[in-house]
């Protein structure tokens, strides 16, 4: 289904007119997403599209509502208003109607977390096997058949190990497979979380600050991994990131949020030169300085400033 037909089907937001920046077919269409907590409006009428087999970055200063968007997409929050349509090989899923674990189970949306959430006392391999839970559950006849050691289950488990092995090789973690996940170095844990998400065999991968806390070399390895997932697996990736070298280096399409509103949407080139983005990051409006800004904000904004000057 092309972007045009999706709009024709009843999209009302002018944001969604025209092709997706960075190209590709629309995989995720977010319309009028609004999330309120009591009186606080965390996201205010945000609409954007993310394309298949492209990397879409969501950026913005701290507190802009990026993680909240993720939480709405992945079933952790139920949005107050909004239509979140995911184009899935099995048909269209409206993510706002799916809650909790079903988002990952049925719609195939996988995610990672800002603060790494592995199963620290289980081994690396076990982390990846747990990710294939639903498939293995069916193979084990919902435990009953598995208890008697049926062949079908053993085969399914072997296949699961194969898939895990595949992603271990891709994330350079094969050697650590039998170690406790909690004992891995930080950078490895980040990659393991991506591998675990991929083991759920998702259609859309949502990464919440995957490069946070990585050194430049680890960051580079991660970039390559994400490009591999995009190019070889034709997987749409949604990415929240503060590290501008990652964002500008690998994204095809960038959505910028500030105070819960979308302030810019385009290719990296377009966003970099958008005055609204520069204002948000530098806080030109003296009275309206974003609260709780971290080092990443001004730094990246400064870099953007330089680039604009050049």
């Amino acid at each position: 289904m092309s972007a045009e037909t999706a709009i024709a089907e009843g999209a009302t937001s002018p944001d969604l007119l025209g092709p997706i920046p960075g190209g590709g077919e629309a995989q995720l269409t977010v319309e009028h997403l609004t999330m309120r907590f009591g009186g606080l409006v965390a996201i205010d009428d945000v609409s954007f599209q993310a394309a298949d087999a492209r990397i879409t970055a969501i950026i913005g200063p701290n507190g802009a509502g990026k993680t909240t968007v993720f939480n709405c997409l992945t079933g952790f929050y139920k949005p107050t208003v909004g239509r979140l349509a995911l184009h899935h090989p099995k048909g269209e899923f409206l993510l706002e109607r799916i809650e909790g674990f079903r988002t990952a189970q049925a719609a195939g949306v996988a995610r990672t977390f800002q603060n790494i959430r592995l199963f620290p006392r289980m081994t690396v391999l076990e982390n990846l096997i747990v990710a294939q839970h639903n498939k293995l559950m069916r193979a084990s006849g919902y435990t009953v058949l598995g208890l008697f050691g049926l062949k079908r289950y053993r085969e399914a488990e072997e296949k699961a190990v194969e898939l895990a092995r595949y992603w271990l090789d891709r994330t350079l973690l094969t050697k650590a497979a039998d170690q406790e996940a909690g004992n891995l170095p930080y950078g490895d844990q980040r990659r393991l979380e991506v591998a675990r998400a991929m083991c759920t065999e998702p259609v859309l991968l949502c990464l919440d600050e995957p490069a946070a806390g990585l050194n430049p070399r680890e960051s580079q390895v991660l970039n390559e991994l994400l490009l591999f997932i995009r190019d070889e697996h034709k997987m749409g990736i949604l990415l929240i990131e503060h590290d501008m070298s990652v964002v500008m280096g690998i994204s095809d399409h960038i959505v910028v949020l500030d105070y819960g509103r979308k302030i810019s949407d385009g290719t990296p080139e377009q966003v970099r030169n958008d005055p609204a983005v520069i204002r948000a990051y530098l806080g030109e409006d003296e009275e309206d300085e974003p609260a709780g800004e971290t080092a990443a904000g001004p730094e990246s904004a400064a870099r953007e400033g330089e680039e604009r000057d050049a």
Binding site: T74, F101, R102, A104, Q105, R111, V130, H133, T200
Partner: peptide
């Protein structure tokens, strides 16, 4: 939380 994100 991680379990839910894996569809468990």
């Amino acid at each position: 939380t991680a379990c839910r994100s894996l569809g468990i």
